[in-house]
Design a protein around this nucleic acid. Structure first.
Length: 106
DNA sequence: CGTATTTGACCTGCGC
DNA sequence: GCGCAGGTCAAATACG
C-alpha cells in the first residue's frame, strides 16, 4: 500500500428512475448482486447497493425506498451496460411497473 | 461445491 | 484540522 490512487476520478453519469414496486430487486433483464446496505437520514428505510454480476458489465445500481411511499422505490443506475439484457420473453411484471417513470425523461 | 447474500468495519470526501 | 456521512470491500453463512 504505497500509492493509493483516488477511487475513481471519472464519475459516470447516473440515471435515476422512480419505479413503483414492492420489491427491491427489479429484474430488468440483468443480474444484480447486493454488495452493501446503508441507512440514509432522509429516509427511514435502508438503501440497497447492487452491482451487475454479468461478465462485461460492472454497472452499479442503487435502490432506495421512499419514506412517503413505501411501495415506491428509486432505482439509480450508475454506468452503462456493455452487454445485451435478457430481453427474451417477458421482463416480469417489474418491467410493466417500470413504465411508470413519467417524472424523468432520459 | 459454487454462488449469492448478509453484516460489520474501514476509507474517502466534504463541510465547518 | 477535525468530524460526519456516505460508500465500498471482505469474510462468513445459507441455499441451490
Amino acid at each position: 500500500m504505497k500509492k493509493i490512487k483516488s477511487r475513481r476520478k471519472v464519475r459516470e453519469p447516473r440515471f435515476c428512475f422512480k419505479t413503483l414496486s414492492e420489491v427491491d430487486v427489479l429484474d430488468d433483464g440483468y443480474k444484480w448482486r447486493k454488495y452493501g446496505q446503508k441507512v440514509v437520514k432522509n429516509t427511514q428505510h435502508p438503501r440497497s447497493y447492487y452491482r451487475c454480476t454479468q461478465d462485461n458489465c460492472r454497472v452499479k445500481k442503487r435502490v432506495e425506498r421512499l419514506a412517503e411511499d413505501p411501495r415506491m422505490v428509486i432505482t439509480t443506475y450508475e454506468g452503462r451496460h456493455a452487454h445485451s439484457p435478457s430481453h427474451d420473453t417477458e421482463e416480469s411484471q417489474a418491467a410493466s411497473n417500470a413504465q411508470l417513470n413519467s417524472d424523468f425523461f432520459w
